[in-house]
Amino acid sequence: MSDDAIPLKTVHRAFEIIEILWEQTSATTSELAAQLDIPESTIYDYLQTLQSMEYVTRTKGEYRLSYKPLTIGGRVKYRSRLFRVAQRELQQVVTETGEVADINVEDSGQAVILHYERGEQALDLGMYPGMRTPLHTHASGKAILAHLPDSRVDEIIDSHGLESMTDQTVTSVETLKNELEHIREEGYAADWDQQVSGMGVIAAPILVNDDILGAVGIIAPSDRVQNESYQEQLQQRVREASSTISINYQYSQ
């Protein structure tokens, strides 16, 4: 978005500061001023305002985010009907498989982890609720893309591109769209080494009345996912999970 298209530049600048503090953990007034190319006195005013609203804290001359964004994010998550109906099913999946199970949703053209559970033999991937990843780089994202309108898929590609995360990431529009067609036909998505080398994902869309709510995925080491018999087990289990979540969603309040 260009500066001319921003209705309230002050609000935009405040969120730029919040995002920098999120990315860097902490920063001084001078460091923020240098990164944003604005006077320190202006940055100071922003920080004082954010501190008064309890979004940032100051320790030994450095500013960092407070826990207030966590409070807001946690509330958003627990208000989600999809989270409430999916949590128990994910727990059952990890009990049975020992792997990681998660729910991804689409937000502003990206995949966002709504919730995840870890089993006894699960990979430790540094995942967290709210983590954002490109939709085209893993099976859960592709399961979502496969059930979005074609115009929306094109819009996401135009806006975000097809960034390469590993040498296995799909970066061709034609190849991606062929994969999405296959996912619609088969009812699940599978890939490995496309977002993180050594990580494989089996995922299925969560559909209610043909509307895509998100995708449920099982994450495991690539070598386990590439084993045909094990992959078939995960395919069956992830489709069962998506069906259960979909039904529970429709009858929940």
Rank of each mutant, 00 (worst) to 15 (best):
D107N: 11
I212F: 05
S197M: 11
E228T: 11
N104V: 13
Y249D: 01
E62R: 15
H136C: 06
G161Q: 08
F83M: 04
A101W: 02
L176Q: 07
A101R: 07
K68Y: 14
Q250K: 11
A33N: 02
Q226I: 02
G126L: 04
I245C: 07
E155L: 05
I157M: 11
E99V: 03
S52C: 01
W192Y: 14
D124S: 09
L82N: 03
T95K: 14
V100A: 01
V94R: 02
D158Y: 03
V153P: 05
M199C: 14
D124F: 07
Q92E: 15
A215C: 04
V238Y: 06
T25D: 14
D167N: 13
H182A: 13
V93P: 09
M199D: 05
F15A: 02
Q250A: 07
S108Y: 11
G73R: 14
E16P: 02
P134K: 00
R13A: 08
K68E: 10
I38E: 12
V105N: 08
P69G: 00
V208P: 04
T171K: 05
P149K: 06
L21I: 08
W22G: 09
I6N: 10
A33D: 01
Y55R: 00
L162A: 06
T71L: 14
A143Q: 05
E16L: 13
R118D: 05
A122N: 07
G214K: 12
A111S: 15
E163H: 11
V238C: 05
K9I: 09
P149M: 07
P221T: 08
V208M: 03
M199Q: 15
V170F: 03
T171H: 07
I245D: 08
N248E: 15
Q91K: 15
Q168S: 13
D154S: 10
L70I: 09
D191S: 15
I113N: 14
L21Q: 09
G98H: 04
T169C: 08
L162P: 05
T171D: 10
V11D: 06
I156P: 08
A27F: 04
M165E: 09
E185R: 13
L70C: 07
V76M: 12
L8P: 00
S246F: 02
T244Y: 05
A34W: 00
A146I: 07
D223Q: 06
L47R: 04
N227D: 15
W192Q: 12
A111T: 12
I212C: 15
T25L: 08
L32Q: 06
G200N: 09
A204P: 01
V153A: 06
G119Y: 07
Q195C: 03
L125V: 05
Q236R: 09
I144P: 03
S108Q: 14
D102N: 13
T25I: 11
S26I: 01
K68R: 15
S164D: 06
V201P: 04
S2M: 12
L21C: 10
W22M: 09
L32E: 05
I38N: 09
T25K: 15
I219T: 15
S30C: 02
L114M: 13
V105S: 08
V94G: 02
T10S: 12
V208C: 04
D193L: 06
L176W: 04
Y116T: 05
A241F: 03
D158K: 14
S52V: 02
T244D: 11
A101T: 09
Q35G: 04
I17P: 08
T71W: 03
Y188I: 10
A146V: 04
G73L: 13
